[in-house]
């Protein structure tokens, strides 16, 4: 199976291990991820706050480039996924917006007809490849590993349709397919506050504290994320959050593809397992 791959800015540098592990896991599952040539930033929440039309146009350029190939677009970052998907939806629904975006694209010698199908990488694995196939490829079951499958907000919202917007299960089921145990995690779709980290740290930290408390209270040994921004918020800031609220959080955070890689026995170096700021614990070291 061949997909056009849109990594997004975060996966280029700060979350390169997400991209590395995604490529390695996909290869093993028989998926070819072909990087979209000359892709540009999706604009994320930040550009959208500034000027919506330009922000939608940035996404539309990516969609126009992707449309040249007859393949679905696989996106590992929830923020990029939402931006691209939202643009594609609004282009179809809103004639005025479509007209203006087309004018902007035409000025740059591009055209978008509205045919690209956008999928999050989790969706590709769980729905297109299927859990049975993944299960059959597992070489080392992660027996007994207690995993907090953290979805964050944007992967299932607003109404993208591949899973329930409030109580999704795909990542839980994937975790089980790897042999691990998903913990009880009622706020698995609560926002991590990453879009506020720079501008309103205190508010963002409080949101992260609530998440980390739930995770540690339910004895998770590792958190897995499906978005580089959630990963950054929970991993890089974990110590600071704990310090602010008087907790000693030490829960390693992995990209979900890294955990898959461990079960598929991909060398941990290739997966970039040790690039997180929270050190790995005994439970995880057992698989490395």
């Amino acid at each position: 199976m061949k997909y056009t791959y849109y990594p997004g800015c975060s996966l280029e540098v700060s979350s390169k291990s997400y991209s590395d592990s995604a490529l390695a896991v996909s290869e093993l599952l028989g998926i070819e991820l072909v990087e979209l040539e000359d892709w540009n930033c999706c604009g994320a929440t930040v550009y959208l706050s500034y000027e919506e039309l330009i922000s939608f146009s940035l996404c539309a350029r990516n969609l126009a480039l992707a449309e040249k190939y007859d393949r679905d677009l696989a996106v590992p970052c929830s923020s990029c996924y939402t931006s691209l998907k939202k643009t594609a939806t609004y282009i179809q629904e809103n004639a005025e917006l479509r007209d203006k975006i087309n004018q902007a694209l035409q000025a740059a010698g591009l055209e978008y007809k509205g045919k690209v199908n956008i999928k999050h990488l989790l969706e590709v694995y769980v729905n297109d490849i299927g859990l049975d196939v993944i299960k059959s490829k597992v070489k080392r079951e992660l027996k007994g590993l207690k995993v907090a499958p953290y979805y964050g907000c944007q992967i299932v919202r607003p109404l993208h349709g591949f899973d329930d917007p409030e109580s999704p299960t795909s990542l839980d089921r994937l975790t089980e397919a790897l042999g691990a145990t998903p913990i009880y995690f009622p706020n698995k779709t609560s926002c991590c506050g990453s879009s506020l980290i720079a501008t309103n740290e205190e508010l963002a930290f409080r949101m992260q504290k609530d998440l980390l408390l739930c995770v540690s209270g339910n004895d998770a040994e590792v958190i897995i994320t499906v978005c580089p921004l959630c990963h950054m918020a929970l991993d890089a800031y974990q110590k600071k959050v704990g310090k602010m609220y008087g907790f000693n959080f030490k829960i390693p955070v992995l990209h979900f593809t890294q955990l898959m890689g461990l079960a598929l026995e991909i060398p941990s170096k290739k997966l970039g397992i040790k690039t997180g700021l929270v050190p790995l614990n005994k439970a995880l070291m057992a698989y490395i």
Binding site: E12, V13, S14, S15, K16, D38, W39, N40, E51, L53, I54, S57, L58, R61, K100, I101, Q103, A104, L105, A107, A108, G109, L110, K274, T275, G276, L277
Partner: peptide, 26 residues
């Protein structure tokens, strides 16, 4: 130290195309 910060920016190849589009949208 974990190579999660790059000192230098990465520019896309067809930046002029993007800028033309942005100007038009503006």
């Amino acid at each position: 130290l974990r190579k999660r910060f790059s000192l230098f920016p990465k520019r896309i190849k067809n930046i002029n195309q993007l800028r033309t589009m942005v100007r038009k949208a503006e």
